[in-house]
Design a protein around this nucleic acid. Structure first.
Lengths: 221, 221
DNA sequence: GCGATTATACCGACCAGTTGGTATGTTGCA
DNA sequence: TGCAACATACCAACTGGTCGGTATAATCGC
């Protein structure tokens, strides 16, 4: 199905398609969808308009294809971290804490100028997209909720939370925090924000589900 | 300086200006800035293009004026809640908890279809705006950080936190959570999200700074 | 008070540049 | 040789912005 990458070819349709998607994504995250012109995309991808409309029937078609690729990557990424967290510990609480820590780790190591989230970009231009495209956003958001909720239910089953809490909202917390931190990062240009805020979520979960309340810290620390 | 509101006038420039800003804000939150045409704005505001360009020299001028109004309202709003929280309690921890609770309360009572945040809308089309406009976003974000940080420092001074925490990141949590919850709300159409997630932030602060660790809850609750 | 004068608020047709999209041609690979 | 993968030239629709003009309000001499 996939063509070998080492074979030099003049024409490589799947590669061309990816180049278009890459260019579009970078441009959209900075300018939004509406202000990202097809000409700008083909310019950045180093191709021509003819090639673009050979691969995509319209600009909206590009929008849908792009967000579908993004969602698939997002999902694969989440699954992979989840699998790693499960391998690293068998304790449900540790698994959740590790999952968050793995994301922290990654965001800290990112050296790119920083991307932001395509979902958020789309949702603030929601009226421009068709139902199928918006459905991808909903599905992705609900996937995060479901995954986190399942993980947290297991935690709560073993470690009764110290307070009665809204579990669904707790599950949504990581997604919300991530999106919010993306916005702050883009606004202030401080890449450390996401990791530092995710750290707080971990602390919260530790305090909420943690096995034993720590002794009060000495005032003169 | 200001004209009486009850006098019906054929011409009311300040009102016209506000109508333009209102129309623009509503359209921008749904379509983004680029896709919001001047024609659409004047159509919604019930005026003409001539009137628009009488009040604003360009579309970018509108963008700046709009975000400045939004930021001023945001700031006034924050100040008011802060003052209320301070009147309701003299305890620094209670003040912060009350501040968050006041926002929860308000978002729950909102019956509009829901707006979203203009700052977030702008930041995902950042390349379209000039430096002065983006500066408003930064200032507003830093204002939130400063206000929350000051409040939290007072809390920490009286109630040593149970864990060593990053205070600045803690201060940013509310802003992040709000922005993230806005995005989730727009995606899923569930207005309750923000309030429910803010509730978790309160719980976190209670657990972190709370006077005494609660006894572990009975497993069969 | 009041008419003349000026400044402000607003109108809507128009323009030049840009946009997404197409029609038609050319090139490389199976 | 046939067809997918591109390139080029082009178009109709739309965009932000302009401009000449008109109606209303504020100012001021008297």
């Amino acid at each position: 199905m996939d063509t070998p990458a080492d074979t030099p070819r003049v024409r490589d349709p799947t590669r061309t398609r990816e180049k278009i998607l890459d260019a579009a994504q970078a441009l959209i995250l900075d300018h939004g969808f509406a202000a990202t012109t097809v000409d700008a995309v083909v310019g950045r991808a180093g191709i021509t308009k003819g090639a673009f409309f050979h691969h995509f029937t319209s600009k909206s078609d590009l929008a849908r294809a792009l967000v579908e690729r993004y969602a698939a990557l997002d999902r694969a990424h989440l699954d992979e971290r989840l699998a790693r967290a499960r391998k690293l510990s068998s304790d449900p609480l540790q698994q959740v804490l590790l999952l968050i820590a793995l994301f922290e780790e990654e965001f800290a190591s990112h050296q790119e100028p920083f991307g932001g989230c395509l979902f958020a970009s789309y949702i603030y231009e929601a009226k421009l997209f068709d139902e199928a495209t918006l459905e991808v956003l909903r599905d992705s958001t609900l996937l995060w909720r479901r995954v986190m909720l399942e993980a947290l239910e297991k935690v709560a089953a073993r470690y009764p939370p110290r307070r009665e809490v809204d579990m669904e909202a707790l599950a949504d917390l990581f997604y919300s925090l991530t999106e919010g931190a993306f916005i702050m990062t883009r606004t202030l240009g401080d890449k450390s924000l996401l990791g530092r805020q995710a750290r707080h979520l971990r602390t919260y979960l530790e305090l909420l589900f943690g096995p034993a309340p720590e002794p009060p810290r000495t005032p003169a620390s």
